[in-house]
Amino acid sequence: MIFQPKTLITGANGFIGGALTAKLFARGEVEDAIFLIRSSKPEEGLVRLVNTLRNHGIKTEQLLKLRLEQILCGDLNVVNRWIDDPRLSSIENVVSSAAVASFGNHPSIWPTNVDGVLNMAHGLAHRCKLKRFLHIGTAMACGLDSPNPVPEGYNLGKKTQHFLEYTHSKYEVEQRLKEELPDLPLVIARPSIVVGHTKLGCKPSGSIFWVFRMALALKAFPCALDQKIDVVPVDYCADALYLLLTKPKLKYDSYHISAGEKYSSNFAEIDKSIAKATGLPPLTNYQQKSYEQILLMKDQFKTLLGECNRRIVAKAIKTYGNFSTLELAFDNQRLIEEGMSEPTPLAKYAELCELTSKDISISEQMKFDYK
Results as ranks from 00 to 15, higher is better:
L295K: 15
P282R: 08
E327H: 04
L156Y: 05
F15Q: 14
L177Y: 07
K6M: 00
N105M: 03
R87H: 13
E152D: 09
T21I: 04
W110G: 00
L186Q: 08
L328C: 05
S192Y: 04
T319A: 11
R81E: 15
S89G: 15
D115A: 14
V173F: 10
E174H: 05
D75P: 03
T52Q: 09
T21R: 10
G306Q: 02
T167Y: 03
E172S: 10
H162P: 00
G18Q: 12
N77D: 08
T21K: 07
P5Q: 03
L181V: 03
N266V: 09
W210R: 10
C202F: 02
C202T: 15
F15S: 01
L244E: 02
I109G: 12
G206P: 01
D115I: 11
C73W: 03
E354H: 15
M366P: 03
H135L: 12
F35D: 09
G28C: 11
N113W: 11
A347R: 14
I193R: 11
S205D: 03
Q70M: 02
S169E: 00
S264H: 03
I136L: 07
L72I: 11
S357A: 14
K170P: 07
N285Y: 10
L144G: 00
I16L: 14
I336F: 10
Q62M: 13
M297G: 05
S97L: 12
P149N: 02
A121W: 08
A141S: 15
A125E: 11
N51I: 02
D239V: 00
S264L: 02
F221V: 06
E354R: 13
P111N: 09
C308Y: 06
E327V: 12
G17W: 06
V173M: 04
E337T: 11
L134P: 00
P248G: 08
A259N: 03
P5N: 05
D230V: 09
L20Y: 07
